[in-house]
Nucleic acid binder design. Sequence first.
DNA 1: GCTAACGTTTACGTTAACGTAAAGTTTGCC
DNA 2: GGCAAACTTTACGTTAACGTAAACGTTAGC
Lengths: 138, 138
Amino acid sequence: MALDQTQSTFGIAELAREFGITTRAIRFYEDKGLLTPARDGQRRVYGSRDHVRLRLIMRGKRLGFSLDEIREMIDLYDVDPSEVSQLKLFIDKLQLRREQLRIQQEDIAETLAELDRLEAQSQDLLAQRASVRTKAAG
Amino acid sequence: MALDQTQSTFGIAELAREFGITTRAIRFYEDKGLLTPARDGQRRVYGSRDHVRLRLIMRGKRLGFSLDEIREMIDLYDVDPSEVSQLKLFIDKLQLRREQLRIQQEDIAETLAELDRLEAQSQDLLAQRASVRTKAAG
DNA sequence: GCTAACGTTTACGTTAACGTAAAGTTTGCC
DNA sequence: GGCAAACTTTACGTTAACGTAAACGTTAGC
């Protein structure tokens, strides 16, 4: 077995290690309807679908979304496209998310620009200090 | 006074209206050291500096930062550049923030790409449905 | 057969970020 | 001078997202 085909089942501790979270958190996400692992007797067995979902959860958290929001986003991937009216609603939801993300992009761009400015200032100051010390020592 | 020079003092209710939050929240931010309004007797008087800070707070919240993190970020704007060692530490902090924001950018880009994919699929489906109905009706 | 390692459920505790309510003060206005 | 609007402090309540602990089951290795 050299091919290391993407692993297809996981234990809870295994997932916890991989994502750097606790098993408590993973069970909590299940309680909140974000994960739906299979069972082997009592034990939870996570498939590749859960693995993907957990990745989406962590990404959502990094973006500051609540678990409720994250669930809504994740559910977008599983939407049932049978009803046209549902489809249109679905597309509307997509637009809302998109708009929110666009705002975040702007916020990040602004912030990065300000950080750039601050760092430039600081580097200037550092250079000045360095040159002052050099001249004083020379 | 036609020039509407940027307003320089604000009441708490005024700020609350402008930013779409409650006065309670504004006082809470003060408790946490994010705002430091002047006083006119008992009453808080917010200057342009507080106004700027409140904007930064709201931006930080949109990006999912905690108030502690936001305070750290805001304090970067007021850093005292007297000590070189402090300056270097300061630059390190800037780098950390930058890295975090870069990750968020990536996360957003990924998410937007997936939303694009989902929407394209949906629009396809909608178009198919529409053409089916058109043919059935024709 | 015992002990780790891994897993389970149940339940109470904790922190952040406010909401909500009570009770009082100050100010402009009629 | 009385009332409403805006403000104050104090304090208890609430929600999200887990942490922590207790008490128990099961499986592999020595």
